[in-house]
């Protein structure tokens, strides 16, 4: 049972990282980046493949994955200059679909739908206990760095851009540059989360980074509340707490996945309908 809790703790931390990164782009920068899981995939695959194929040290792989995801995140800030609201959200969703298609079709490198097995753990963190310590440390550090960013004048400017782009411009804020930095940081953390996931689970496939994970992160963030750092943590941990007991219910195992998704989506809908600011959010979803 303890081993199981440690396993859960690691996964929960990784989801918290993803949600924190997502909250930076959606809650603070005001960009509903539905390609977020695509960024996680970039981090995971880059790290896994450089370590497996090029024999890079695990740490270097994780750094490379995070940096490449950061670049991809910055790239996703580009269309925001011209494309707003719903269109931006669906366009970035397209990034995830294109990423997935690349992972499936570029099978000489990614092994396609078979996935990448045997991804090693970083040296010294082979056991789950050590790995848990590692991700907890990384999550806490990330939380404080992000909290610092959003509570600085930079974060304030970011929120201004989210609330009213034109007024922010009139006040001399370089809207594009602000969003570029926010998306890059968001991508960096998403990539880091992806790389940690890859080295923890030790097997990734295109299915690991798909709509289910996206709506999970989306639900966690909306439930916690936009533009709230503790909200992102509470929301994603809450979903974990709801989802795990399902495994122990007397239902066929192939039903667990769909049932979990249905419950998550029902909760997400209820929040959008009855409490759009989430549990502790400071802003609402707007177009």
């Amino acid at each position: 049972m303890d081993a199981y809790l440690i396993h859960l703790g690691i996964l929960a931390c990784i989801y918290v990282l993803m949600t924190l990164a997502f909250n930076l782009s959606v809650g603070y920068a005001g960009l509903l980046n539905l390609g977020h899981v695509g960024l996680v995939a970039v981090g995971a695959y880059t790290s896994a493949l450089t370590v497996r194929h090029l024999d890079w040290p695990v740490w270097l792989g994780i750094v490379a994955g995070s940096l490449l995801a950061m670049t991809a995140g910055a790239f996703l800030a580009l269309p925001a200059r011209k494309i707003k609201g719903d269109y931006y959200a669906l366009l970035t969703l397209g990034f995830m679909f294109v990423m997935s298609a690349v992972l499936i079709n570029w099978d000489s490198v990614t092994r396609g739908t078979l996935g990448v097995p045997g991804i090693p753990r970083p040296g010294g963190f082979q056991t789950n206990v050590m790995f848990l310590l590692l991700v907890v440390a990384i999550t806490i550090a990330t939380y404080f760095v992000l909290a610092r960013i959003v509570n600085s004048p930079f974060g304030r400017a970011l929120e201004a851009v989210r609330d009213d782009e034109e007024v922010a411009m009139a006040l001399g804020k370089p809207v594009f540059r602000l969003r570029l930095v926010a998306m890059a940081v968001s991508g960096l953390i998403a990539g880091l989360a992806g790389a940690l996931l890859a080295h923890f689970v030790q097997f990734i496939s295109p299915n690991t980074f798909w709509l289910d994970q996206l709506v999970w992160v989306l639900a966690g963030m909306v439930i916690g509340g936009l533009a709230s750092m503790p909200g992102a943590v509470v929301g994603s941990v809450l979903l974990f707490a709801i989802s795990e007991p399902l495994r122990f219910l007397p239902i066929p195992s192939e039903l667990v996945g769909p049932l979990r998704l249905m419950i998550f989506m029902a909760i997400l809908l209820a929040f959008v309908l009855y409490r759009p600011k989430g549990l502790m959010g400071r802003a609402q979803l707007e177009g």
Binding site: L32, G257, M265, L285, E286, G287
Partner: peptide, 21 residues
Amino acid sequence: RKTKGLGYLVATVALLMFGNA
């Protein structure tokens, strides 16, 4: 509730994924 654009989008995505599941 006079919800704006992205609220509808999240709701419709939630409905779509709910239905899918």
